[in-house]
Every structure is written in C-alpha cells, then in structure tokens.
Nucleic acid binder design. Structure first.
Lengths: 353, 353
DNA sequence: ATGAAAGCGCTAACAA
DNA sequence: TTGTTAGCGCTTTCAT
C-alpha cells in the first residue's frame, strides 16, 4: 500500500534556494566563499543551513561548464609500474591537495598515441594544467601544447626545447659524484650503461659521464659506453654482457638507472662475478627496496618526492599568474653509498705508495 | 594596425551545424555513432567532414551534464607507493580502455577522511562506477555506497559484508600451499607474521595459517603468531624480533606479505641469522624485484594484473545491466619457490627413518 | 543586497 | 529524416 516515491535526486542549488526562500543566484553567492561578502550575513547563514540540512553538494560538472575551470590538474606518467613515480605522485598530491586542487593520473605506457589521446581527454575535461613525466628530447606534441599556452610543467625529464618549464634532477653533477666516488676508491676503468638517448636523462648522464672521466684523467675511449634501448633490466643485462664479451677491461659500472643496474646483478649471478670484489656498480634513482639487494646497491639518489612537490608548486604559480615566468629547476642529487662499490681487486700501479 | 581578433574559441557543435547547414541536433545525431543511423547518410558524412575540418572535439563536460554519464570509472588506491598496485592499475586500464572508458586514480594514503572526500569528488564528477582497493572488514562508507546503488567492485581486499562484489586472491588456499611446502621440507615449527586484522587479507591469512597447521598435524599454539599493526617492513622486523626475544623455537616464517618478509631480512642481517639455513621465509604477493633479494624470496604469487582486469570486466558488466548479479571472485594463487626456503637445519626426530 | 535573465555545450523528447 | 524546444546545474552580468 505504499505510494511510489520519486527517484531520490541529489539536491541542486535550486532546491537550496527554494528552501531558503531566495533566488538561486543569491544561494550561489552565499555558498561560494569568494562571493559571500556580497550577500546579507543572515541570508547567507540561512542558505548555508539549508544547504547543510539538505546535504547539498555543488555539481562540479555544471560549474566547469559555466566557468571553464575544474580545480584539477592532469598528471601524465609513462609507466606507473616504474617505482620511480609513486613518490613523485605523492609529492604532487601533497602540494595540490591543500591548494584545493585534485590530480588525475593517466598512464601512457610509453605510447605516443596513447599519450596524445589521454592528454586530449584531460584537456577536454578542462584540467587547468598538466604535469608531464613523459618528455622526450624531441617532443612535437609538448611543443604544440606550450605554443597553445597550456599551463604545463615537465618533471624528471626535459625536452630539448628549453622554453618548457621543468623540474628535474641535476644529473650531470650526480654522475660526476658517482665517478669521483669510484675514482677515490681507485678505479681507473669505468664503464657506463647509457639509457635511451632520446630522453634528457639518458643523454645528460651519458655526456656527463664522458666529461667526468676526462676531469679525473681517466680513460674515455668510447668502448667504455654501452647503449641501452630502454630503461629495463633486460637491456642492462644485455649491455653489460656486450661489454664483457667484447673483452673490455673495467672494474666498475655506472648504470644509467637502477633498473639497468638490476640487470647487472643478473649477469653477476650468471657469470660468477662477485660484486664488489670483481666489479663495482652504481645505480641511479635510489629506488625503493634497492637497499635490500645483495649487495645493497650504491645509487645516486634523485629526490623524487621533492621533484613532485616542486613541480606542483611551480604549476600552481603558473595557474595563478596569467603572465608566467618560465623557469627550469634542477634539484641536487646525492650519492647513497652501499656495498655494491668497493676498491678494485688490483689497485692500479700508479696508486701504490 | 592589426585588428583585435576574437580569442580562439574551440569549435562547438553549433559551429559544426552552422558549417554543415543543419540544426545542432542533427549534427549531434550524426556525430554520435549510436544515433548516426537516424540521419541521412549524405548529411551525416557532410557533418563529419565539417567537424573534421574544424577540428571539432565534443565537450565531455557538457555531455556529462546532460546525460549524467562520463565514460569514466574511479579507482581508489590506499597507497600508490605499494608496488602491489601498479600491476592492478595496468590490468584495469587494459580492460577499460578498449571498452571506451577512462580510469581516474585517487590515492587515499590509508586515510578514511581523505577516502571519503576523494570518493565524493569522483562521484560528483559522475564517475559511473568505482573499483575500490581500500576495503577494511568494517567499512560503513562502502556499505552506504552499496546501499545507495553505487556500482562498485572491491579488489584485493573485501569487507565483512559479503553483499559487496569483490575480486580477491584465494588467500586461504595460498597459505595452505605455503604451509604444505614448508611441511614437505621438514619444518614442524612455523610462525606467522599476521597483517592487520581489520583487513580481509590479514584476517583470512591468519586463520588459514592456524587451520593449515592443524591439517598438517603441526603445533598450533598461539605463541607462533605475531601481530603486525601495518603492512610495513618495520612492523615485520618488529614482529620477528618479538618472537625471537620471547624464546620461541621455530624454523620457518610465513609473512603476511612481502613487505613484512622484507623486514625479516633486516633482522637476519642484524642478528647473523642465515636464511634459509637457520630460518626459512615465505612472503605473500610476489611483488616486483622480490626475486632480486639475497636470498631470492619464496612468495605466494597473487595475480595482480588479473585481479585488475577481472574487476574491470565485472564492473563493466554492472554498468551495462541495470539489475546486477553480485558475485565475488577468488583468483587462484601459486607458490613461487625461491631460495629463501629450504630444509630446517635439524630435521625433527620424528622425521628420521 | 537581491532578483531576472541568459547561457556554458550538449542531448533527447516531441513534433513536423 | 530533420527541426523545435527544453533543460542538465551552475555562474554572472545587469538591473533594481
């Protein structure tokens, strides 16, 4: 004997206005802290009370449609399964949240088409800015977005186009520190597993490596660098095997990142190489759990959380000021010394008393 | 002497309609594949041509406002820095993408308030469903959402309320397999580091452990379980120390998950315990890079990618059919045997010929 | 201090 | 097959 109830529809601004006996426009003004001063204090509090009692929640979609804003920024990640990114995301969210912004994450899987379509979908949802972790040195899509005036900060990697604001690690200094550490231990023949040269991290670390060798008066013949096609364990293992098979003599390896270094560990096991007695290794990033390896990996620590928080701060600044002073920030890196580096087995003659 | 140009406004449906000489409604029908059959083939192709040439992109915000739909689902993650989740996300996106859906990720940081506000923000953005990885056994918020008819699938963990559809690993069987493996190796005194008992994974694994001990006729006094307050290395280390300090005798540890097992490794180093000679360890999840530990960790593999893809399929089904047959799925787990488990040092007397 | 009116861009009855 | 009309829920001139 029950009467049919109308479907429960969430209360709208109109309902609040009706309940408070005011026009929707007035209710809108009362509800928005920025415009609240425009309305009579008593009226305002009445509106707020009614809104509260009705459980009114403003509809952000309607608001976006009207204002073309969304209080949201998009986060473009190449591969979430890389342990690098979660701390970056955390850093970004910790800054964005208190500022009233949400972050929407998308995962491109390192696929340029997917990247374009995802960025498209974010933009059409009125995200107010982008934080992009997928930069390649040549990146027409990002150049175009920048030209269109899209608010955007690159993170972790940069493009060759220095007009795009970015927050990255100071890779060159990081590599120099790693080389200095190994040279101090007595190493004279150091090799580098270079990451993809179409990324700034791959290229900068590679160049800095060669420069550091020269600075320390170490051998810098090109045979001491092996190219990796991707930032993966497999490529790291392949590259190290290549150097060993070519009969190169070396006592230490600087890997372009920790995943490449992880690949080296596989080769150690495979070929009975003992680390660091036979070969020292340095990684890059100091990613989570890397200290749990045997031996724990010496790695150049990149402050990922700070990368994220700094990029978020920079973007917020850009969203606030219409004329945006573009900057690029390099954050300092530090070497975390662990047991994967030690003196070379045969101390070179020139180092003996 | 330049005239002021109007700001470049992205073309709207109206612009397309104007260009094609039709009414906006007709243009809308032509543009939407589902309604295209309603319009004259020639007209349709004309509209499409104009849309193409104008670079028209439908505005999903306006569409959402009108239709109350969004082609988007929300993904609620407790802590993205846990390596568990990236593969889950990948599995979800791989199913959602081809179905025309986007996923928006949010990170609750295990904070119930943050969780509520983020879910709120997703819902107000008209997400059509939720995949929730934050379930606790008692979870009033999720109960309420379910009661409100929100389309939702729990993943990895469940609530005590079995009405909520879920996709989880078959933890009980997984634990039984681990115990069987250790028993086969000759272990008689096995301890368990139990994860938080307010999560289904923590509780189910704990109970299954006790059951498995009984099934194998092993000792099951309660002193062989140590409680961990969180799924962290620190708690794992603390719990193991507690058992050792209490003078418990045991030859093997089943950790509630890999992070707890990682904590055990710290204690091994600290106390000069050699694994597996002095103590065997089994982890849970088989998370990335866990095979790179020394010794590589034996772990119960949870098929995270499949958890994600299955949950996504289930949710899509729910979105399509108004009457949703709620199911809960348990995916089978498998033991990945590595070098952290071996026979106990002293084979118990009853096992000697 | 408040109300009236218009419209953000789209879709879905309904009518023709 | 196409056009008319109305409205999703909100904000923002403009007028009072």
């Amino acid at each position: 004997m029950s009467t049919t109830l109308p479907p429960v529809r969430p209360p709208t601004l109109r309902d609040v206005a009706l309940g408070a006996g005011v026009h929707p426009a007035t209710a809108s003004r009362a509800l928005n802290p920025a415009t609240r001063p425009l309305v009579n204090t008593e009226t305002a509090s009445r509106v707020l009370r009614v809104a509260e009692s009705l459980g009114y929640r403003p509809n952000p979609i309607a608001r976006s449609l009207k204002t073309s804003r969304s209080a949201t920024v998009g986060l473009v990640i190449p591969d979430l399964t890389n342990p690098l990114f979660p701390p970056i995301v955390r850093g970004i969210e910790d800054v964005l949240g208190p500022a009233g912004y949400n972050a929407w994450l998308v995962n491109t899987d390192n696929d340029a088409d997917r990247e374009e379509s995802l960025i498209d979908s974010l933009r059409s949802r009125q995200v107010e800015g982008l934080i992009v972790a997928t930069a390649r040195l040549q990146h027409p899509l990002l150049d175009r977005l920048h030209a269109e005036g899209v608010r955007m900060v690159l993170i972790n990697r940069r493009t060759a186009n220095a007009d795009l604001p970015s927050v990255t690690g100071d890779d060159a200094t990081g590599v120099a520190t790693a080389v200095a550490h190994l040279a101090d231990l007595g190493h004279r023949r150091i090799v580098h597993l270079a990451g993809p040269q179409n990324t700034s991290t791959g290229l900068v670390r590679h160049r800095a490596f060669l420069q550091a060798l020269r600075d320390h008066g170490l051998d810098d013949d090109l045979g001491l660098v092996a190219q990796c096609a991707s930032w993966s364990e497999e490529e790291g293992a392949r590259a190290l095997r290549e150097l060993l098979d070519a009969g190169r003599e070396f006592t230490a390896v600087i890997a372009g990142n920790d995943l490449l270094a992880l690949g080296c560990y596989d080769v150690f096991a495979e070929r009975g190489i003992e680390c660091p007695r036979d070969l020292s290794v340095v990684g890059f990033n100091d990613m989570p759990f890397i200290d749990k390896l045997r031996p724990p990996l010496t790695s150049v620590r990149v402050p990922h959380y700070e990368l994220g928080s700094e990029a978020a701060r920079m973007l917020l600044e850009g969203l606030r000021s219409p004329t945006w002073q573009v900057r690029s920030v390099l954050l300092p890196l530090t070497l975390t010394r662990r047991q994967s580096t030690g003196p070379p087995r045969h101390t070179p003659a020139e180092n003996l008393g």
